Simulated scan of single mutants.
Amino acid sequence: MKHLKYLGIIAACIFLYSCSKSEESDEISFSSDIAGFLENSCTACHYGGRQSPDLREQYAYNALIDGEYVLPGNSADSPLVQQLESGHPSAGHLTQSQIDQVKLWIDQGAVNN
């Protein structure tokens, strides 16, 4: 009977550990998941002062946050998402999956990671 008790505790620990790992893997990274495709898709216009915000990879995060294009924790009211969902020209260069990643990143707090 003692062995079943310990087996249950071990199973619960493994389950909780696996749940925490899957939540961590769902975190969107700005530098790994967002910045690259913004630069590839948007810098034909949003580059070096041609049109704000500057979305070159080294400037994109600060330009989006400082320019209030992103409202951390609130993708629905973020101007960036509104532009992408309203038919902004560069939205045609992004997949729905990429737009969903931007929204999730914003909803997760728009961390510079």
Rank of each mutant, 00 (worst) to 15 (best):
L104C: 02
Y17G: 15
L55N: 02
M1E: 11
L71V: 15
I10L: 15
S41C: 14
N113S: 10
Y6M: 06
Y61L: 06
Y61K: 01
Y69N: 04
E39K: 12
A63W: 04
K2V: 04
V111R: 14
F37D: 07
G48P: 00
A12N: 04
C13R: 03
A76E: 13
S52D: 15
G49E: 11
Q58G: 08
D66F: 07
L7F: 10
E27V: 15
F15D: 07
D33R: 00
H3C: 05
L55R: 03
F15T: 15
S97W: 03
P53T: 08
A110R: 05
R50A: 14
S86A: 13
Y47N: 15
I65Q: 01
E24V: 13
W105N: 01
A12G: 06
S86I: 07
L84G: 04
E27W: 09
N74S: 08
L71R: 10
K21Y: 12
N40H: 09
D33G: 08
F37T: 11
Q108V: 05
V81S: 07
I28W: 00
S25P: 02
S78T: 08
Q96E: 15
A44V: 15
A76N: 11
A91Y: 06
A110P: 01
I34N: 03
A11Y: 00
S52P: 14
H93C: 08
I65K: 06
Q108A: 02
V102M: 10
K5Q: 11
L7I: 12
F30S: 08
Q83M: 13
E27C: 08
D77A: 12
S75D: 00
A76K: 13
D54A: 10
C42Y: 04
D100K: 06
S52G: 09
I34W: 04
A11P: 04
G36H: 06
W105G: 01
S78W: 04
Y17H: 12
I106E: 01
R50V: 13
L4A: 11
A35D: 07
D26Q: 14
Q96K: 10
L38I: 09
N112H: 11
D33V: 09
L71F: 10
D33Y: 05
V70E: 00
W105F: 04
L71Q: 08
S41W: 02
V81R: 05
L80Y: 01
Q51N: 14
V81H: 02
S52Q: 14
C19T: 13
C13T: 15
C42Q: 07
C19Y: 11
Q108E: 02
C13F: 14
G109E: 03
N113A: 07
I99R: 03
H46W: 09
V111H: 11
P72W: 04
N113D: 13
I65G: 00
D26C: 07
G67Q: 04
S18Q: 14
G67V: 03
V81P: 00
S32E: 12
S20L: 13
L80P: 02
Y59H: 12
L16D: 08
G73A: 03
S90Y: 07
A12Q: 04
Q82H: 09
